[in-house]
Amino acid sequence: MCVMENSQDDYPANKIIRLWDLPLGKSATVNSIQAEGITRRRMLDLGMVPGTIVEAIRVSPAGDPKAYRVRGAVIAFRKEEAHKILINFKGE
């Protein structure tokens, strides 16, 4: 769901999706951050720079936020934030 339209649609093996849509247990690399201002700076601070490997590891029992492994630490992002991070996902 929520797959970004992009020119490489013929290659389902490498899609740009939102971090929130990364299935649990899967890894991807950060493509870009769409947030601006302080949110952007904080995400960068946590190491969410383009090329960084992120792994979705768990979801709160309330459904939101989700926790991701980023550079060795586990960081929870709310849906709103995880929506602003685009990732390159190589599929299953």
Binding site: P65, A67, A73, F77
Partner: peptide
């Protein structure tokens, strides 16, 4: 709501 970034150590 401000940005929510919470580390689970």
């Amino acid at each position: 709501p401000s940005s929510f970034t919470l580390e689970l150590p």
